[in-house]
Design a protein around this nucleic acid. Structure first.
Lengths: 348, 348
DNA sequence: CCACGCGATGTTTACGTAAACATGGACTGC
DNA sequence: GCAGTCCATGTTTACGTAAACATCGCGTGG
């Protein structure tokens, strides 16, 4: 008796997974019929279908996606390139991308770049080029990419987050400028003469835009523009900035470029005996879940990361499914200001 | 004249990507030679190699990974199934997995499950079964999986995080019990009579083990075991627990099952005028980056998520590369206690 | 009553790659 | 000087799937 799979040894190594041919043999039909059953195509009589399904069950058949991808010319997968999942924004955006992609039958492949050197980015893209991916979402400033000879793989569709490349790529992003303006306006409306600002790292385009909008809003209101305090998104950098600000009697309001830095600022103020919001008001950016439980609860600009992720998937699928026209342009997701306990009118 | 790929129109739609055959034709060699050059095999003379490389460059050739996967029978991809990326632990673990996988030439595919119903989990696994994946890392309690007829796809290697399934699967996890014991011991050593506890959600095995270790440690020390306060990882639930604890004069020390809930507790205490650590000491779990900037800085149990991720990849690759022996068992990553400002001796 | 049509199923082929085998020319050793 | 060898390269084939085309049998209308 010949044992299926050539496994003369019972329970021996079966390196090969079961294929349609195996199922077909067991069910006594052709592999094409198995294919039809597997894909739910019509034109298979009920009894035959049952037979095939039984054979599939018995053998534990699962379609080979590599063969499928080869046959169809696509992978049903979207790649995501990013620096870090550590930041709240990135991980929430990725999660939303994954969720919406899954709903459309797409999986997502993550390509992290630990150190943002040109080489690593290039490497990731080269690798990505060979990757089983129909489209790529890039969560980072693309000027890191196209300074030199680096080219996005020509055949792959691209959506970019956190970038000003709207002229060349399809960009989705939070409306950073609008959010920052709302923060500044809120503080000015409360009666503050001006607003100090703790920035994000210079490498972040999102950070740059928040800073720029902060400056513009102050200038348009005819207010003095205080010197920048440079941060790097971390609570630690916020803490350092907070210590510096606590010593300035002329500071009554601070806008930090994210919530974590706001946390550091709050702690510095607390240590120095600066009361928030009585002495100084603080506004953050992001609205991380914890922000409502800072001491005091943080007034901040809410970002809709889920919506950003959703639109990324939407654009990616448009490009994949659409004939080929690349809809470059920037799609901005609105923000909202969440007023909590860290802001108030200046004591004067 | 027959036009290849119908590319009679310059710049027209080229749905087909360039294949080895295209490169071969342009370079005037066979496709096998192109293959050899592409894979860096020896036995190709320099001049020929140059010619092929030039043709590749000209056509923008990139290997088709689907065909490769089909040929080789593997995908060089590891799947990751999880509920949520929102929790610090998960996203950091995933990041570590992605980084280490990348270093080994593997990409990772993310399968999120938005709502942890049996159906969704089953669906994810069914889908995963068809997915182009050589191994799967499951970041969740597996009892959600194998209660019913749900079976992990037999051909796919599995590593589980956050589970007690060490008898059946290959499990990697933080040594939760040890961490919790360290937290409790630290507080007892400071002179506290006993330690209260705010739990994680009951669905979390990690949470269960922390709670269990907390109870064991108290019992072994012959201390009374206070009633549990139930949380769900969120700062909000910690806040609620904190309000309850603030009213208990017999409470001098709290161990919260994560840092976010500790944040909520701290805020509740601050609101109620309870001084930390003078009136009540607080210890968290995770050591999120922000913990050092809480008010006061949080004493907490540090988890090495990066190491967890690294070991997941290691185990997965062992299974993929190893003949087939499945090394079931639990691999625990040690924790360390980080003492900051939120703990001190009881005032008495 | 036969041809035609249609529905169910089988057969061929192509997707892109790379191992295995084949070829053919140059060089070596005796 | 000729057989043996080895090296560079070409040819064949298989991986698993599914579209396109082929076949076969049965029912029906003219």
């Amino acid at each position: 008796m010949v044992e299926r799979g050539g496994s003369g040894v019972p329970g021996g190594r079966r390196k090969q997974r079961v294929s349609m041919a195996d199922v077909a043999k067991l069910a006594g039909v052709s592999s094409q019929t198995v294919s039809r059953v597997s894909n739910g195509h019509p034109g298979v009589i009920a009894s035959t279908r049952e037979q095939v399904l039984a054979a599939m069950r018995e053998l534990g058949y699962r379609p080979n996606s590599a063969a499928r991808a080869l046959r169809y010319g696509q992978f049903n997968t979207i790649g995501v390139i990013l620096f870090s999942l550590s930041s709240t924004g990135n991980s929430r955006t990725v999660e939303a991308i994954a969720t919406h992609a899954a709903a459309e039958g797409y999986a997502i492949t993550l390509i992290p770049i630990d150190v943002p050197t040109q080489d690593n980015v290039l490497g990731a893209f080269t690798r990505m080029g060979e990757l089983a991916v129909d489209a790529v979402v890039v969560i980072m400033e693309v000027h890191l990419l196209d300074t030199g000879t680096v080219q996005l793989p020509p055949g792959v569709h691209v959506v970019v987050v956190d970038s000003d490349a709207g002229d060349r790529y399809c960009v989705v992003d939070t409306d950073q400028a609008d959010g920052a303006r709302k923060a500044v306006r809120h503080l000015l409306d409360l009666g503050h003469e001006t607003v100090w600002h703790v920035t994000g790292p210079e490498s972040s385009y999102a950070g740059q835009r928040r800073t720029q909008a902060w400056r513009t809003e102050l200038q348009e209101a005819g207010r003095p523009v205080p010197p920048l305090l440079h941060g790097d998104w971390s609570a630690e950098s916020g803490y350092a900035a907070g210590l510096a600000l606590a010593d300035r009697p002329d500071c009554t309001a601070v806008f930090t470029a994210n919530d974590q830095m706001a946390l550091g600022v709050l702690r510095a103020f607390h240590e120095r005996g600066v009361a928030v919001p009585e002495d100084i008001s603080v506004v953050g950016f992001d609205d991380i879940p914890d922000a409502a439980y800072f001491v005091p609860p943080l007034t901040t600009v809410h970002q809709d990361f889920a919506e950003v992720g959703r639109r990324c998937v939407e654009k990616a699928l448009q490009q994949i499914r659409g004939a080929g026209g690349v809809p470059a342009g920037t799609d901005l997701v609105p923000t909202s200001l969440v007023v909590r306990g860290s802001t108030g009118s200046p004591r004067r």
